[in-house]
Nucleic acid binder design. Sequence first.
DNA 1: CCCGGTTACGCTTGTCGTAAAGATT
DNA 2: AATCTTTACGACAAGCGTAACCGGG
Lengths: 281, 281
Amino acid sequence: MDPHLLRTFVAVARLASFSAAARELGYTQSAVSQHIAALESDLRTELLTRRPVAPTPAGERLLEHAGPLLLRLEAARADVLRLAAAPPGRVTVATSPLAVGPRLLSALPATGVTLRVLPPAQVPAVVAAGECDLGLVDGLAAPSDPLRLPDVAPLRVTGIGEEELAVLIPAGHPLAGRAAVRLDDLADARWLDAPGIGLAPAVRTAPALHYDGTDLHALCALAAAGHGLALLPLPVARAAPAGVAVPLVSPRLVHRTELLAPGAPTGAALAVAARLTGGPS
Amino acid sequence: MDPHLLRTFVAVARLASFSAAARELGYTQSAVSQHIAALESDLRTELLTRRPVAPTPAGERLLEHAGPLLLRLEAARADVLRLAAAPPGRVTVATSPLAVGPRLLSALPATGVTLRVLPPAQVPAVVAAGECDLGLVDGLAAPSDPLRLPDVAPLRVTGIGEEELAVLIPAGHPLAGRAAVRLDDLADARWLDAPGIGLAPAVRTAPALHYDGTDLHALCALAAAGHGLALLPLPVARAAPAGVAVPLVSPRLVHRTELLAPGAPTGAALAVAARLTGGPS
DNA sequence: CCCGGTTACGCTTGTCGTAAAGATT
DNA sequence: AATCTTTACGACAAGCGTAACCGGG
């Protein structure tokens, strides 16, 4: 179960070829063959069928473990390395689109910060891997409940804000005049599915349209044009250039944003983190 | 970042001694020294102070990663090995005390099952490591919300039941006559803290008494005798030999129990899992 | 036949143990 | 002085590459 063997195993499984994996990893075909043979003899099981190359059931199972395992290993390495390196003045912050708000903007120092907007699902991994010093993620949660994040590595999580939710409804829609809606009212509605922005997965019904970008403006435009409803934080929905923001009152959910830090942040990152957690809302 | 190096690193840190770690791991002191040196040169950082042997800040950080990492690695190995081994007729089920109820008892086949009662926090690790084929955990959650479990490994989680909560109150207590209580009513109450059984950690106030066992009967006796209140599933509290069970109506929380399975359960474990998820409640 | 995975074999590298040296209390 | 870690060094095994081998399309 050497990580090197695991790494070539996932490469072979992904590429469905020993030789392609060898090229990708800078080994010879022979070495890759020996790696797989070593793994299989260690576990006393066939992990791959040859010709065609495909994982056996046991191989499938190992693949489920190997990915997170290698991710954590790399994250651990990067984390310690970053801690050891002299803290540079620059701070890079990974953030999901909806976490970019007045709070973040007022907490940023005048200079020396790089912002990296990513789909919420990728933020924890990027922070864990040490590519960014801090992370901001947002999502749906019951009031004052923490978010459910994948724990790729031990990260410090701090809640830094909660907001009401609203549904962005096109102007002509029958519900557009309501002062508030319940999710039940919208049981048959068609929702926009935007994994790059978040919030949508909470709704169970079949989505009307997939949007793969991270651009909030585009999502609002789609919603206002009637391509489907969008679930957004109330302030964001209010600020949309078109469409009507109707607060969602049931179930009691809020839009929550949290700060992720690898261990205790150091140096310049610490200052930003402090302003985010303790600073003005 | 070889797992072997990591393993000796945690051993050295835990024992605060190179030579003790060497004895424990079956190496010579020299080999341990070389392991640590290899890690430190790889990460280009001091991880331990010598004389006395203690982790540096970077070492502390690495320790946080190393534990879960090694656990997952071992879990992955055990999982694949177990899948590969011919499924024996015996099934072992790890369960937290409060998950043992009529549902489980009726789902068990007449023979071939070993039950292992553990504190809820240990159940996921035991299932992940393949020591048990199935796991049952219980805990507090908002209705129809999944439990928050540590993800030591990719486990299949299935909710199999939710119950109302109740507070077990000694007979003479002022609240004993109430038809229902809110958590606010009990803000100043003293709670029993029983991590081996669960549920207590949801309450924030300082506990009156720690109970480290997993025996439900003992906990009920303590509560009935006035040593502190106990938060229990309503049916369990009702069945207590003494004390009064008062339903908890606010906040809206339920006692939830979930089934953990490593990947898809196989053979005899599958049959038990099916009866637990689909069987009579 | 050709493509691709396996096996054989030599070489390099890494890893462990023994033993001597160095440091710290 | 005693204890514990480090360093030096030799033996052994592991891992990789070259090259020959085989099994399917």
